[in-house]
Computed example of a mutant assay.
Amino acid sequence: QREEAESLGASFKFEDPCKHLSQEEIQAKLDAKEPYVIRQTIKNVGETSFDDEVYGHIEFDGDLLDEQILLKSDGFPTYNFANIIDDHQMQISHVVRGNEYLSSTPKYNLIYDAYGWERPTYVHVPPVMKDEHHKLSKRNGDASFQDLVAKGYLPEAIINYLALLGWSPETEQEIYSLPELIKEFKVSRISKSPAIFDIDKLTWMNGLYLRNMDEETYYETVRPYLEKAIQNDYDLKQIAKIIQPRIDHLEQIEEAVDFFDVLPDYDLQMYKHKKMKTTLEIALKSLKAVEEELSALSDWSSEQVIHDMLLALPKKMEMKNGQVLWPVRTALTGKQFTPGGAIEIAYILGKDESLNRIRTGIERLEKELESAK
């Protein structure tokens, strides 16, 4: 039947040949214990309709519906049959599901009607897509809610973002608590069009949640990640404080702070900074001056003391702030991008470690410049 329909370019609808058997033929097959299924009989239905909370009033030609299998040859019900019975017995009032089931709903309604049961209220929603052509699919490796949490996204941020996929509030507000979402949500605001899952938008929203946390809540949230990433004895609360404005999800923490334990073998070209007008020669000059000043600094108990010293030095040397601070930050972290500035990081590292790293930078720059002669 399918091949014939395809050859004619017509849509396929299965016509069950068993419908034309006589009662005698049916009984003979039953007596012979031939396997059979039970199908839904759809005959002379004509126009049928139902109302959906998202898509409105929908009409179908009932006589074009497939006569679906209700009981399989092993006696077990199909999902499409069992789910109707299950929903009725559990007194389900609203059925919320993907819009791919819109075309099946008239068949479900015929079963509700056949039993004399009240039809539920239908809410068919569009799919969430990974791009314009593919739906999100766990089978294809797309992240589940649990996967996103494991990747360092906050549950409340995920819920907030997912609520805005395919649904729009009446205002421009984007950040909602769960009670606010419950209060504002209206089914009538659900879009009929698919929504595309944008991981960058979720990351942005997650970053807002992290930055808006109070200091103590934020610290307790990031502390397990800091304890995993940093083994040396540093003030984790201070590190949490400097990364808070710069972290968008928790998995970024380990890479952002790994330099505290071990200074990476960084490229000396990092000392060059076009905007700061910093060269290797300028970086060496700055580091030597900073090393001298920090060595003489007896009080390391306050970040303000280090701040005052490092910001006084550029004026004293008649240089720009960046020409001093950039080389220091590079020497202390060995990273192009850091969760804090030179002053904050020096304070956390402590005097001895800061001086060791600056001296390492001086030695490497001296060797590089000497070999270049």
Rank of each mutant, 00 (worst) to 15 (best):
K335W: 09
E174Y: 08
F259N: 10
K315Q: 15
G166M: 12
F145K: 11
E6I: 13
D113T: 04
C18G: 11
K274W: 10
K315S: 15
G141N: 08
K107S: 03
E368P: 02
I358Q: 00
N212C: 04
T279F: 03
L162M: 12
Q231T: 14
N44W: 07
M319C: 03
Y225F: 15
G334W: 10
D74R: 08
Q304N: 10
T48A: 04
C18Y: 08
R139T: 14
T203C: 05
R119M: 06
P169M: 11
N99F: 06
P327A: 04
N99A: 09
R119H: 13
L64V: 06
V123E: 02
V54W: 04
R189Q: 15
Y79V: 01
L30H: 12
M205H: 04
E34N: 05
K130Q: 13
K19M: 08
Y108K: 03
L236S: 09
D258E: 14
A372R: 12
W117F: 06
L280A: 08
F185C: 13
A28P: 03
Q269F: 08
M276T: 07
E118I: 02
P339T: 12
N356R: 11
L210C: 11
L226H: 03
W117K: 02
T221A: 02
S302Y: 12
N232C: 13
H273T: 05
K33V: 07
E6W: 10
I58F: 01
F185K: 05
I38L: 13
I111E: 02
N83Q: 11
T221D: 12
V123R: 01
I190C: 14
Y101C: 03
I282A: 09
I253N: 12
S7D: 03
R39D: 00
I242F: 10
I69K: 00
A289R: 07
E59A: 14
A256Q: 08
G322W: 06
G116E: 02
G322K: 13
L280E: 14
I182A: 14
R357A: 13
D267A: 12
D248R: 11
Q304I: 11
K285Q: 15
K316W: 09
L70D: 00
T121Q: 06
K288E: 14
E344R: 08
I111S: 04
T360M: 11
Q244A: 04
G46V: 02
I92H: 01
L349A: 08
M270D: 04
T48V: 14
